[in-house]
Every structure is written in C-alpha cells, then in structure tokens.
Design a protein around this nucleic acid. Structure first.
Lengths: 348, 348
DNA sequence: AGAACTAATGTTAACGTTAACTTAATAGCA
DNA sequence: TGCTATTAAGTTAACGTTAACATTAGTTCT
C-alpha cells in the first residue's frame, strides 16, 4: 500500500471549489461562513480525513499552546506527581504537555531543552537535578525570553521562577524529631559524595545535630559514589538496603536513621528486619516524601511530606502567567513548607 | 524588560550582508560556503543567540525526527522502563521523544494523540490501556498512514505493529507453579470487574485452574469496581492490601495468592504479615513484572518477569522501520515470552 | 437615496526555513 | 584557447496555515 499524503486545507478547498481561507474559517469556527458552505466543508473534511497541520499553524500563529516538562528520574513518585499535577493544570487551560526524560547526563538535559525549544513550546518546566552545562544552556534559553520555571532544584536567573520544597527545614525537622525521642546516634542514608552541598536534606540533618550539640559522625553518613541523579527511583531502595547493612555492621550501630527518601527508607527497613531487629525499638526510621507506600510499610513509615502536587500546580500556574504576560518583571521564588508525618516507624 | 523576538535566519543574513540561504548552509553544514563567510556567520549566530526555528524547519522538511509515546500510568515501572528503553533506542538514531500522559480517560487519550499528530511527530508508540473511543481515533491516525506501534495492549489494524508480553502464559505459569507446590485454594488479587476479558493474567490463572481440575471460586477473585486504568501504579499496593484483608476474613482462606503485579503483591504481603501469618508457610505469594523491588521484599517475591526493556526497544525499532520505509506492507505482532522467577515468597 | 452597516467570500502576504535552480567566478586540463 | 569542473554565492518558490485587507451583495437606518 502506498502512503498517500494527508489532505491539506487547499485540497479540501479545491474539491469543493472555495478558497482555502473559507475552509480555514470553518475549521476554526471564526469569521462569517454560510450554513451551506459550512456543511459542504465539514463533509469534505470528514470524507478526506482532514486534520489541520499543527506545524504550519504554529508557524503562522507563533505559538503552540504546548508546554514542555523535563524530568530526571521518572521512576520516582516525585516526578510522577509533579507531572500529573502539571498536566492537570495545563489541560484545564487548554495547553498540552510534552514530557522529556533526561535520566543520565547534561548531554541529555541539553538534548531535551533543545528539542522542546525547536518545537517552539510556549514554555518549559524543568525538574531535573542541576548540572553545569545543562544550566548554561537553560540560561541561554531564558535569555531568549522563553518562559522557564524550575521545580525542586537550584537555578538563579532573573527571568526564571522557581518552586521548591523546603528540604533543609524538612531534614532538620526529621532529625529533630529523632533527637526529641532521645536518639543520639542518628545515621543518614543516601548521601551524595559528589555534590553534598546540593542535598539540602542532608544539610538540614547536619544542622539539627549541630544545634543540639551532637557530634557528626561521618561513618553514620552513607551513600554512593555516583551522582544520585544517575540512580532510578525505585533502585534507591537498594541503596537504602545496602547502606543499612553497612551501618548495621558498625561496631557502634546507630539507634535511628534518616533516609533521603521513602524508597531508601523501605530498603533500610528491610535490612533491619532481616537482621532480626525491631523497628522502632532497636532502630527508628524516618523517610522523606510521604509517597503512597509509606502508609503500607510494616510498620508504617514516619516521613516528611512535601507538597508534590502543589509544586506541580504552582509551576504550571507561574509558567502560564509568564506565557500570558510576555513582559513579566517580577520573578517568584517559592519555597514550600514540608510537614513531618509521625507514624510507627519512630514511635511505637 | 521587554521580550524581544528571537533572531531569525534573515536577521543574521541581514546583519552580515549575505543571503539567508548562505546562513542556512552554514547552520546545517551543507553546500559550499567560504571559510571567511562561515566564520562571520558563526560569530553572528553566537552573538545574536540564534537557534533555528524547528517549527519552520519541520514544515519545510516535512519531518520532525520526533516520536511520541503515549503512556497511561507513569507511576508504574512498566511504563517507566518502556519509556527509558524507547528513548535510548530513539536517541541512538537521532530521534527525540515526547511523552504524553493519558491517565484517566478516552478523552485524554484522544487529546494526547491529537497533540502529537498536530506537532507532526514522525510516529507514535501507544502503551495505554485500550478503550473504544481512543482506539477509534487511533485507527483514524493509522489510516492517515502515520506510523503507529502499540505496546502491551490490544489493537488490530493492518498498518499497526504490536508488541506485548505473553500475559496469558505468564498468568498460567504463575498459577501452575502454585498448583505444583500443592496449593488448592489459590486467590487472584487485582481483577477488573469492568473488562475482565482484557486481563490476560487473570485468564491465564483461570485456565491453569481449569486444566488442573480445580474449581474456580469467585470469592477468591478480588478487585475493584473502577477500571484499573484509573488507578496509579503504586496505589495498587493499597488494592493488594485491601484485597488480601478481604481474603483473610473468608471462612476458608486461600493458601496462595497470585497478584496482578508486584505492587499488589507487596500490599498483600503487608496484610499477611500484619495478620501474624507467615509467607510462604501460611500463604504463598506470586507477583507479576519482576520490578526492582521484588528482590527487596521480605521474603523476596516470586514473580513473573516480563521483558519490559525489550518491549520498548522493539517498539522503537519497529516504529523507526515503519518511518523509514514509508510503504511497509508487513505488519508485525510480537508476543514476548515471560519467565517465572521463583523466590522465597512461594518456596522457603 | 446615500451612508453605514452586516454577511459571505476572496486575495495577498507572511510565519522561518530550505530544496532546487541559477549565476558567476575561478581552476584545471586537453 | 576553449571547455568542463568546482566553488561560492544568490534567487525563487514552496511547506500549510491564517491575519489583514479587499470585494461584493444585501440590509438597515436616517
């Protein structure tokens, strides 16, 4: 079977003997068209299986009603929830969403940015972990006045709004909770050795220890050599498991652990239970994110809830605002509060 | 700050006094351009922060080097793995990937299809659960000779390739494994009451029971009223938990359960452990998918591995083939084998 | 009756790029 | 010297759509 080209406006116009513009008017429901003509056009459109060529339309209209979302690890509920919230907010306003994945590298970040820009999306939401080259390209895009909003990551540019959870405060609160329960040897699981400063949850943990005059014991901080952005979400369960194993083999093991996210926490819990120890009596566990599975672990997991959907909603709103008001002057940097959810993994 | 329009080819051409075509040649590295001119163009491009307008380019070239992927539930590792595999295969061939989510309805399926078609993607991979209106639209798209490949779902069209795991055989094998272990009362968790015929895993379960002359007990088949496509992946953990609770409260409870996926299985395991029962001694559990977490559950989960990455790779390959050979005659329908992975949740 | 609308359509040009063609100058070679 | 290649540009038209303007006929108002 030979592939025939899709019908165009002109094809429709030619077959029923009107000007392309008339067909355009019918298709878009604009301007004056007589009832008779409208019907004839509609019929031809149906018969010839016509669909407007969006590329041509976009070129002419200079907008696409489409927004791009660049995600790092899509295995993580964090990304998922943000994506869903963004999509909901956008589709309520008639915008489409294209998601690009950039799982591994600055190169892929750049490829994702470029392909979105090349398709003339009206704006871009970025929720990847930051890296130097990627950020440079992103700055270039923002410089060209393409609306950009970043979520859950560092990025400073006078044309770019940012939204993030207060990971520092969340980490602080989680650790403080463990300290309040009387714990003195509190471990951290899931540190990044490459870019530790970027991991606000770890910083919050360190700050809480310091504030309460507890010594920081480096042996109690576990993680991996790789940048964390290289590790898919559910695999961090493995990191939690391995990290906990290492902690359990210490001569003086911790009495509590704060895991960088719920997956890591679940992995740690598995290791603790395997060792025949009890949660929270022998070791208390705190996670982060309050993913849906946190309620279903055994025991249910104490965790820090970050407003994931809200971040997505806000990102979409700010971006749409930026798209609508082409000369926005103000730049918003929102930091959203986290909330400690106490369950039985810390308090029996 | 006023938003200035991005520079165009003509802008560059005008500032250095050459024809737009010359600039195009430099940008694309085609045709003859003198070294001097090339350098002057390159410099202007850099200074004016120029990027080619992909929409215009696509319109002219009549191709976008972009493929669309429509996913249902992106919370599910199944979707995630497929997306990653597709992206890898595509980017190796210089194609970009745009992902659309259609989480809830035929309406969203259609919106996703349309927005991809409107952006003139070169082809579409569909991995959503099928539904009537969505399938009709998809057929219309295939009729217009836009390359389409479907993954893990039913869809028959003489221009559409399909790839799926052999869910029936997988469900059969999982159930058979339990029967071989001597179980007689085997439950199924996660049935769909709306479209039961579509759930091949359940059909495989039923067939295995029948083949071994075991009566099908409807009380042992649990699920929810909603269509399963309405439920995000990690939430199926809750379904597993609730379903198992119900099964445990039966006067004559099952000695084994086959869960429709690993998340559901994990939820069921939680309920079993909460009830103070042992896995596999009191109740054996089998999952499906072999998600990364299956190794980390307590005890590790027996499950049916389906080749997720392979499905994504094949989908990408078949689509690229269809894109390259515009008049492909053959249609491929591949069914990939599943593999039972036996762990300690069925055999101590 | 002429001005001032409304309704229905057509015409032109442009969005930014590039394929296909043309022009012109230089180089190579029998 | 004349003839063919090669190099380095420029010109034209088109991809499919639509904004802006133009035209025509009929309607309404004063």
């Amino acid at each position: 079977m030979i592939r025939k080209k899709p019908a165009t406006l002109s094809d429709i116009a030619a077959t029923i003997g009107v000007a392309p513009m008339t067909v355009s008017r019918v298709v878009n429901g604009t301007g004056y068209v007589s009832e008779l003509t409208r019907e004839r056009v509609m019929q031809a459109v149906a018969e010839m299986n016509y669909r407007p060529n969006g590329v041509a339309r976009n070129l002419k209209r200079q907008k696409t009603e489409t927004v791009g979302l660049v995600l790092g690890d899509i295995s993580n509920p964090y990304s998922t929830e943000i994506a869903n919230a963004v999509r909901e907010s956008l589709s309520a306003r008639g915008f489409n969403l294209f998601i690009c994945i950039s799982e591994h590298s600055a190169k892929e970040d750049i490829a994702a940015f470029d392909s979105l820009v090349d398709h003339n999306v009206d704006g871009i939401i970025v929720a990847t972990r930051s890296n130097k080259e990627g950020d440079e390209r992103l700055a270039g895009i923002a410089d060209r006045n393409i609306p950009v909003v970043v979520v859950g990551r560092d990025f400073h540019h006078d044309q770019v709004d940012s939204i993030a959870a207060d990971n520092f405060a969340g980490g602080f609160e989680a650790t403080q909770h463990l300290i309040d329960l009387g714990h003195k040897r509190i471990a951290f699981i899931g540190a990044s050795f490459i870019n530790r400063g970027n991991l606000k949850r770890l910083q919050g943990y360190l700050a809480a220890l310091t504030e309460h005059n507890l010594a920081v014991d480096e042996r109690l901080i576990t993680g991996r050599r790789e940048t964390l952005s290289e590790i898919p979400g559910y695999s961090t369960e493995k990191i939690g498991y391995e990290g906990m194993k290492r902690l359990l083999s210490l001569p003086n093991r911790p009495t509590a652990v704060f895991a960088r996210n719920d997956f890591t926490a679940v992995g740690a819990m598995t290791a603790i239970k395997e060792a025949g120890l009890s949660i929270p009596d022998d070791i208390a566990v705190v996670g982060f994110d309050d993913t849906p599975l946190a309620v279903h672990t055994l025991p249910p997991l104490t965790t820090v809830r970050q407003p994931m959907r809200l971040q997505g909603q806000l990102a979409a709103e700010l971006l749409l605002k930026r798209i609508a008001e082409k000369d926005t002057v103000t730049t918003e940097n929102r930091v959203l509060e986290c909330e400690l959810i106490v369950r039985q993994s810390t308090v029996a």
